[in-house]
């Protein structure tokens, strides 16, 4: 059993390495659960949109669900979903490489995901300028605008998460090289890994959402 160490800088607080380890594991677990809960939160928000879609579609009030079968520009929409799925897949692949210790691969994959995410957002905004319908012209049109707004927020959020991880990964790596494996650096590294796992899962979820709504808005 290790000795209990005074915590420098915090008068009166002493913390044993066991305590630090205990809390580190709690923090890692928190990232695991937090990711799943975050996915649950976003899923319920999008479930609201899906409910709106099916509710308005089945009600077809005033025969105005989707007059003349008009859709949003399919080419742009398909590009968006393809890019989002590609980003999700790339995030997954990058994480597999990271697990194997190939950090540079993960960095390359990650920055590509960031660029793809930003491209998706740009495309989604551009698509809004190319619509062949007025936002309030039908139930479909309304749901589509809602989808575009929510998707922009979702993709931006996922992109933010991976970007911050990448930036942190770079600093962490430099610290590890320059300072060696200090306890602080090692715990930061473990949390970083836990976050990378969570972020990958979140990107997978983002891709699944994109695919699901693509089916709703462009296929069915």
């Amino acid at each position: 059993m290790s000795a209990i160490n005074p915590a420098p800088g915090i008068p009166g607080l002493i913390e044993s390495p066991e305590e630090a380890e205990y809390e580190l594991r709690a923090a890692e677990g928190s990232v695991w659960t937090g990711t799943r809960l975050a996915i649950g939160i976003v899923a319920f928000a999008f479930a609201g949109l899906a409910f709106a879609y099916f509710y308005l579609r089945s009600a077809n009030n005033d025969q105005s669900w989707r007059p003349h079968g008009v859709t949003a520009p399919t080419d742009i929409g398909t590009s968006i979903v393809a890019l989002t799925i590609a980003a999700g897949a790339l995030a997954l692949l990058g994480n597999v490489r990271l697990r194997r210790g190939l950090r540079a691969d993960w960095q390359v994959a990650g920055w590509t995901v960031v660029a793809t995410g930003l491209l998706v957002v740009a495309l989604q905004i551009w698509e809004l300028t190319r619509l062949r319908f007025f936002p309030g012209s039908s139930g479909y049109a309304s749901c589509f605008i809602g989808w575009a707004a929510m998707n922009i927020a979702l993709v931006l959020g996922a992109t933010y998460w991976i970007e911050t991880l990448l930036a942190r990964g770079l600093r962490l790596r430099r610290a590890l090289v320059e300072e060696g494996a200090t306890p602080a650096a090692l715990s930061a590294e473990r949390l970083f890994r836990a976050n990378a796992e969570g972020c990958t899962l979140f990107w997978g979820f983002t891709a699944a959402v994109a695919a699901f709504f693509w089916l709703l808005f462009y296929i069915f």
Partner: peptide, 14 residues
């Protein structure tokens, strides 16, 4: 100490 590191942190002396 006790403050989080990164997204979620670990309590550690510092």
């Amino acid at each position: 100490a006790g403050e989080p590191v990164g997204d979620v942190g670990v309590t550690r002396p510092g």
